[in-house]
Simulated scan of single mutants.
Amino acid sequence: SVSTPRGAPSGEHPTMSRAVFVLAQRSASSSSRALPSSFIASSHTVRLFATESPGLPESVTRIGKASVFPNEYPGQNYSFNWSLNADGVTPLKKSAFRITKPLDLKVAGLEQAKTSPLKVNAAAARGVLPEAGSDDLSFDTFDEVTQRTKDLLSLSDHLYCPEGHVPGTRIGVRVICNSAKLAPNLLAYLERAPRREPQNQPITAYVLEGTEEDFSAYAIEEVEDQQGVAKSVAAVVVVGKNPKIQTIVAGLELSVEGLLADEEERKKKAEEEAAAE
């Protein structure tokens, strides 16, 4: 009798199973011999290139960290950062807080001022604060210190930027400073302005705390807006180890007087030109 090998399907003839197996072996062997050795080598080469080749381009091996765009958070607001950039300050540490109301102080991690509104007597400081372009201070010196101050503010760990109106006026102010101590008092001094999208103000004050350099001054210059209309803007620069709020307020008050005087002069000139026609 003929026995069926273990594992063979029931009813299958053992001789036929062995024949099929031998035929399969021969077919595989002949197929391998038919393949050129270069094909086998090249397949190994491709596999090596895909995983281990030291010659891979950096763009292939580099693995980037995924991030979400826009990546905004308190202190990192793209619209406000662009507005600061137009003022010449770029918050490189990505921590710049726009402060227009008391709640913004809390977001920035600051305490509110003990007195609000804060009255500041800047009479003494007004008498010693020079204006750029006068006999006491050249525009070149003012521009040099201003640019250095902007650069150092850009490198500050945190920027605090109170905004509002100079008390008793509707003239907007933005103070760009690195002082957590001055920011709450400056907000308490300024009158609250309607909340709008970030935009550059007629007066910009640059206040840098913690430097050996001691400098304070203001400048008024005439520029043209996007419609080509002439207008005046002011810049106040106060730099020192511990800048005083009286000095900053003196610069703001003197700037307001200069802006109003320029506006009155342009108005008078326009009336004279209209009368001459």
Results as ranks from 00 to 15, higher is better:
Val128Tyr: 03
Lys106Met: 12
Gly251Asp: 02
Gly64Cys: 12
Leu152Phe: 09
Ala34Phe: 08
Glu263Gln: 12
Leu187Gly: 06
Gly7Thr: 00
Leu23Phe: 13
Ala125Phe: 02
Asn81Val: 10
Leu92Gly: 08
Leu118Trp: 01
Glu265Asn: 11
Ala183Thr: 03
Ser156Leu: 03
Ser116Phe: 03
Val20Phe: 02
Asp140Asn: 12
Gly251His: 04
Lys93His: 12
Lys268Leu: 09
Ser179Asp: 09
Ser10Pro: 05
Glu273Phe: 07
Glu163Tyr: 04
Gly164Asp: 00
Ile248Met: 00
Glu213Leu: 13
Val238Gln: 01
Gly258Cys: 10
Glu257Phe: 08
Pro198Asp: 04
Ala234Asn: 06
Glu263Cys: 05
Leu137Met: 07
Ala188Glu: 02
Ala19Ile: 10
Val107Gln: 05
Asp143Cys: 07
Pro14Lys: 01
Ser67Asp: 06
Asn121Pro: 00
Glu224Ala: 14
Ala183Phe: 06
Leu152His: 13
Thr51Asp: 08
Ser32Thr: 10
Leu186Val: 09
Ala193Thr: 03
Ala235Phe: 06
Arg6Phe: 07
Leu254Glu: 15
Thr115Ser: 04
Ala235Asp: 09
Ala113Ser: 15
Glu72Tyr: 02
Lys181Pro: 02
Ser179Tyr: 03
Ser95Gln: 14
Glu271Val: 13
His13Trp: 01
Leu56Lys: 13
Pro91Gln: 10
Lys241Leu: 14
Ser42Tyr: 13
Gly210Ala: 07
Lys241Phe: 09
Ala270Cys: 00
Val207Tyr: 03
Pro202Glu: 05
Gly55Ile: 07
Pro202Gly: 04
Gly127Tyr: 01
Pro102His: 04
Ala113His: 03
Glu144Val: 12
Glu272Val: 12
Val166Arg: 04
Asp135Cys: 03
Asp225Ile: 05
Leu152Arg: 15
Ser38Asn: 01
Pro117Gln: 00
Val166Glu: 04
